[in-house]
């Protein structure tokens, strides 16, 4: 029995040593490659953070100017107590996202609001316009038939009124006669926080049947139409500004965290690397010494 076991044990021991030797040599190389790549990633995330910090400062400054604009545009709908018509259920949702990722949950947050709404009953009357490729990517697989159009090339440059005007024109010519709707966007609160919020959209009919519209003087259909077209553009402009600012601030935080995590990984990998290197040296010394001792 002993005779049978002993060779097996011996064989195993040899295998372990061989294996360890191979692994040690290999890991040293592998660890240094890994270390290098993590360091490069850290450099990239760090510079992305710097870039988005600069973009964020600009976006915040512009947002400050756009806030009264957006609030002013919504005020009329609140004051006139415009409400969605009861009999017409057609709704339009506009998802304000951008083309760029790596910015935390900015895009998923907006898409989630719409997804939750679409999974509720009555969703067949809802159409969605995706602004930015990210919301399309999230929504198209499950709710592709609700999407009527997609706008992209958003997020590379700060939004301008011209972009909003084009988007407004696209909404008005989409061929979809919505009765009411919402613009879902990220409202910027501070560098570390934003929340999904919405702005109302109404059809001309809904505005004309508003209970308090009668107190407004000298209105005709033309004025209301022009007014609503412009206010749609201004609301879109405001939502774009809010979205851009939240996105940059969120990207800044995300990239900061990524750099921190990369730093932690680098520390751990350096430690393992040094330890392994020391182990290799020690083992080589042992081999030399025991070789010399065997000769004596």
């Amino acid at each position: 029995m002993l005779g049978r076991v002993a060779p097996g044990v011996c064989g195993q021991a040899v295998a372990v040593v061989n294996h360890q030797q191979n692994r040690n040599m290999a890991t040293l190389k592998a660890i240094s490659i890994r270390l290098k790549s993590v360091k490069n990633i850290q450099k990239i995330t760090q510079s992305m953070k710097m870039v988005s910090a600069a973009k964020y400062t600009r976006a915040e400054r512009e947002l400050k100017a756009a806030r009264p604009y957006g609030e002013g545009a919504v005020q009329f709908y609140e004051r006139a107590e415009v409400a969605a018509p009861e009999d017409d259920k057609k709704e339009l949702y506009i998802a304000m996202t951008s083309d760029r990722g790596l910015c935390g949950a900015v895009h998923t947050g907006v898409s989630k609001v719409i997804r939750n709404r679409l999974s509720e009953p009555g969703a067949e009357n809802i159409k969605v316009i995706c602004v930015g490729d990210k919301s399309r990517g999230i929504l198209q697989r499950l709710y592709g038939k609700h999407i009527i159009s997609v706008a992209n090339e958003i997020g590379r440059l700060p939004p301008t009124f011209q972009d909003a005007a084009k988007l407004a024109a696209a909404v008005l010519t989409s061929g979809y006669e919505f009765a009411s709707g919402k613009i879902i966007y990220n409202k910027f609160k501070s560098v570390v926080s934003y929340a999904q919020s919405d702005l109302p959209l109404y059809s001309q009919k809904a505005v004309e049947s508003a209970p308090k519209l009668a107190i407004y003087d000298s209105l005709d259909a033309d004025v209301i139409q022009s007014y609503m077209e412009f206010s749609l553009a201004s609301m879109l402009f405001y939502a774009m500004k809010e979205g851009a600012c939240s996105e940059q601030s969120s990207r800044m935080t995300a990239m900061d965290n990524a750099s921190k995590n990369a730093g932690e990984m680098i520390d751990k990998l350096t430690l393992t690397f040094n330890r392994t290197r020391q182990a290799v040296i020690t083992r080589e010394l042992i081999e030399i010494i025991s070789g010399a001792a065997a000769l004596d």
């Binding site: 009527i148 061929g175 979809y176």
Partner: peptide, 22 residues
């Protein structure tokens, strides 16, 4: 024109709609 599912692509600041007044 009447197709509902039209994908609208535009490039920022292209000259497609030159808003001259601006």
């Amino acid at each position: 024109k009447d197709r509902i599912c039209n994908y609208i692509f535009w490039t920022k600041r292209n000259t497609l709609s030159k808003m001259a007044f601006r």
